[in-house]
Amino acid sequence: MGREPGIVRTYLRVGTLFELQYRVNFFLQLVQSLVALGTAVAVIALVFSYTDDLAGWSPYELLVIVGVHVLLGGVIRAFIQPSMQRLMEDIREGTFDHVLVKPADAQLLASVQQFSIWQLVDVVVGAAVIAVAVANLDTGLGPLDAGAFALTLVLGAVTIYCFWLLITVGAFWIVRMEFVAELFNGLYQAGRWPVTIYPAWLQIGFTVLIPLAFAITVPAEALTGRLGGTMVLAALGFTAAIVAVTRWAWRRGLRRYDGASA
């Protein structure tokens, strides 16, 4: 397993050097991020012009969610989505063969092959929004909360990665999967609000089917003093489970690809 960090480092370095050539993308991304953020804040302002409290969340608490949503969206579009879309294409066109004949874990290679570093602008913007929102909260932020936030955010990112990969693996069976990116981005918008505002059936959907609850709401709860130890354990358990299921589905997909099951 010793070679894996080296592979990730090399891919990151090469991908970053490549993207740095296209500096204009940075400005485009910045404008796009700010427009999206402006819209999100305007919607919150609109909602709170009618009420002081949305399912127990105050305006700044909701801003924390917006921040996590923007930050995680940046991580997804920078690190997860590009490689997954590339993987779908590779499976469809047969170029996935080249990944399989390399002496490294195929899932790892497929997951790090493409980055879009300018999307990290969203990570910075998201972090800034979180900082502003937390500074305006009445409840203080202890080191334990910060730690829980960091932990649940990483778990959330891993969960979303697994979710994306699970869907992408579908390309081994259903060749055309391009619509998935659009579908995911559409559904991801729902994560801008705490899952508790949705009806029960949707809450279950956003927890288990599309894990927005664990990815966005739970880290935001850590920053707003709502998160208990049980929920952290649940997030840990859920992440472990989805990682295992994803690995299993990946192996099944590979077996289908190379015809072991035929």
């Binding site: 592979i7 480092r9 090399t10 050097l17 047969g94 170029t95």
Partner: peptide, 20 residues
């Protein structure tokens, strides 16, 4: 079929193979 990275300079693909 292509196995080098389409957008990257050839040396970068070689570098990736070195790591792999």
């Amino acid at each position: 079929r292509n196995q080098l990275q389409w957008d990257l300079p050839v040396v970068d693909s070689f570098e990736m193979n070195r790591a792999i």
